[in-house]
């Protein structure tokens, strides 16, 4: 589903990604972790070409994201993405947030988009808030809306870029619950997160990144039993010690 092949990226002369390769198959849930500045957020943004990269190739569903001939809007429309800071559109109601891309990008009728949006909103438990503005919701609620907004586009896979990092602890679980449910339905997911509990529960594989490199790319069991690299061991020891 997502094939990342020897991707390198530089900001000026500073290399943020070096030679990253991995494959994510259909229905697979892959957690990407690593210290801050390791390039994990940059890598996930390369998958739907929000960030350009200079070397290598990424194919989503067989379509290259760096090929100038690729219709990026069309590709992105079917790759759901959830951001650290939710990024709901603050000038629109929750309902409009859910509908705008369905109508403008997929060409759905407003009623159809609304019905689909409301159904997904109900699924994340927020149907009563449809006519509020994002600013009136809590962080956890906003992030659940953001997930519903992405799902409304009928994505073939979902990218999560630190979806719980900006949340208060008591709100993290309501977002993770939605993600766990999504994973159990067989959604292909690439998740940048430090939530090792989530990784343990639903991930098939864990990728560990450090200094722009994929240091470890192993099945979850092996990763949690004993990561091969020292860096990953140190990282795990740190975040699991509390």
């Amino acid at each position: 589903m997502i094939e990342i092949d020897r991707v390198s990226k530089w900001y000026g002369s500073f290399q943020v990604l070096s030679d990253c390769s991995t494959h994510i198959g259909k229905g697979e849930v892959v957690v990407v972790c690593g210290p801050s500045g390791s390039g994990k957020s940059t890598l996930i943004k390369c998958v739907n070409a929000l960030e350009p990269f200079q070397k290598g190739e990424i194919r989503v569903n067989g379509i290259s994201v760096s090929d100038p001939k690729t219709n990026l809007s069309q590709l992105r429309a079917h790759v759901g993405m959830v951001f650290q800071h939710f990024e709901l559109f603050p000038h629109m109601t929750i309902c409009d947030n859910l509908c705008i891309a369905q109508v403008k990008v997929l060409g759905r009728l407003r009623e159809e988009a609304m019905e689909r949006g409301l159904r997904l909103l109900d699924r994340v438990g927020l149907k009563a808030h449809a006519h509020k503005y994002p600013g009136q919701l809590s962080g956890g609620q906003q992030q659940r809306v953001a997930i519903a907004r992405a799902l409304a586009m009928d994505p073939i896979c979902m990218l999560f870029d630190e979806p719980t990092s900006a949340l208060d602890p008591e709100m993290i679980n309501e977002v993770l619950d939605v993600m766990v449910e999504l994973a159990s339905e067989g959604m292909t997911m690439m998740v940048v997160t430090h939530e090792m509990g989530f990784a343990r529960k639903v991930a098939h594989r864990v990728i560990f990144m450090d200094q722009g490199r994929i240091v470890e790319d192993t099945p979850k069991e092996a990763f949690f039993a004993m990561p091969r690299s020292e860096r990953a061991q140190a990282f795990l020891a740190k975040i699991l010690s509390h």
Binding site: L50, S73, R76, M81, A101, A150
Partner: peptide, 17 residues
Amino acid sequence: PKGQIYASYALGMNYAQ
């Protein structure tokens, strides 16, 4: 914020939209 533009692109909207 740049994130708003990312979010819009990620939903498949083009530059003009």
